[in-house]
Design a binder for these strands. Structure first.
Lengths: 258, 258
DNA sequence: ATTAACAATAAACAATTTGTTAATTAAAAA
DNA sequence: TTTTTAATTAACAAATTGTTTATTGTTAAT
């Protein structure tokens, strides 16, 4: 019946519609400080920002010029915001399979002076290899990595300070409560490499202690020891390798230790 | 690079804008089955759906008529999607302070036959008292509670099956990994009442066991014993009452027991 | 060739927490 | 007065954690 008839009678102009729908992406990467040989890494969680140009393509003053911003763009009417984020990021980085997750919507009236523009916000995890490369080849004045400690002190465009603050909160939770950390690591990794990733977002003593963590990693159901392979990336002595098993994990706060 | 940026800006006019922006709400409530005196409750997590009318307010054939749907409506240009959800729900229920959380965006092209309509999805937690009331006073053919086990078998409007499936997943996680369970409980509650809420979404043996759970609740940093008050709601014997402390809790999966 | 350095592990053991079963308490109902 | 039942405590073995102290295997320095 009548979905078709109903559709004919429906007046789409009854409501005011948004002036735009964008997909924005907080691009996270983890860099290893001084990567000495035979040393476990020390890592830092970084976020990539772009600097908005002073002038637009027509030579006029750009909106929110010279401020740092997260990359993004308009969503097309034949794709989802998630697909737009993936498309933009993969086109730009030329990497496939980037991990992206939607985490929030920013739609406060007046957030964008150009009109009623709704931002669908995502975070992405990109290998540091790409970003260093990218920064080297470009003129690169307009792209920069910032640590999550310093980024909120910058002069940020639009409501991007709020978006970034939320993204940091979300990725922190996800790193600790899901297996998303795997996206910051090679397929096979040592306990100290995983530990270094987690240390970027927690001070939990059970994670900080080498002995406890290297003992515990063996009993985690979502991590498996790689048989017959070792590495000397982090130590002179050959070191065991682990890999993540694809698995959903939910651990209630009601059964944890405090 | 700035060229690329400028190009994106320039392209703004090329993209069409969405035909609508809606805020939709999965309304959850927990009902107590046969609430006998002096018995700990047995609870069920339910979701409230409305049946879409055959005709709309102007007497025209309604789209997706006679299907079950989650409530929602168009966001106005002077409010956020979150505010719209709150406004609609609080207007309708006449309750203030309802817990609402945004959890996803649904924007797949073609999801709504009326056009390019973006749905900002929320879940809400409403006391069962209201919903029984509401169902009694209305003609009530158009509003119904469904258990989360049966709801996905219904004939649901638009992409609401996906939205509801996601909402169930999110609220399950939140119930176990945050203190959101407090919104299903009175200010002061017994261990067995909290246990009953959690049992609606988990089979974790440490939560199922009365002895373990009543012992554990005493050591949870985000729950506090209420001094000098007891209740006989759940037992003939006077029972201790607890309350939630406002607190963020993150427990890493890497330090849990398995 | 020996030795120092050092990350990764293992060993050891006390302290803590959990799983489990049994006992106790308190108030309503029979 | 006795029975019933949820809440709670007790008790203890089993498992896990925190912590300190070795041990291992390799590189680099002497």
């Amino acid at each position: 019946m009548s979905n078709k008839q109903a559709l004919k009678q429906y007046d789409i102009k009854k409501y005011r519609t948004p002036d735009g729908y964008t997909s924005d992406i907080c691009v996270f990467t983890i860099i290893s400080e001084k990567n000495e040989a035979y040393k476990p890494p020390t890592m830092d969680l970084m976020i990539m920002l772009i600097k908005r140009a002073a002038l637009d393509s027509e030579g006029n003053m750009n909106i929110e010029a010279n401020k740092w911003a997260i990359p993004g763009g308009f969503v097309q009417d034949n794709e989802t915001g998630f697909q737009a984020a993936k498309r933009e990021l993969e086109e730009e980085t030329n990497i496939s399979g980037i991990h992206i997750k939607q985490f929030g919507v920013y739609d406060k009236p007046g957030r964008d002076p150009r009109g009623w523009i709704i931002s669908n916000a995502h975070y992405a995890i990109v290998p540091d290899t790409y970003l260093s490369l990218r920064k080297a080849q470009d003129d690169a004045a307009d792209i920069e990595l910032f640590s999550i400690k310093e980024v909120l002190n910058l002069n940020l465009a639009f409501d991007h300070k709020q978006i970034i603050a939320d993204a940091i909160q979300v990725i922190t939770n996800d790193l600790l409560q899901t297996t998303v950390a795997k996206n910051f690591l090679p397929e096979n990794f040592t306990y100290s490499e995983l530990q270094a990733v987690l240390k970027t977002v927690t001070n939990d003593p059970a994670i900080l202690s080498d002995q406890s963590f290297s003992r515990k990693i063996k009993s985690l159901p979502f991590i498996q020891e790689v048989q017959g392979k070792t590495t000397t990336r982090t130590s002179k002595r050959a070191t065991k390798l682990y890999r993540f098993i694809e698995m959903d994990v939910i651990k209630p706060i009601y059964t944890a230790r405090y």
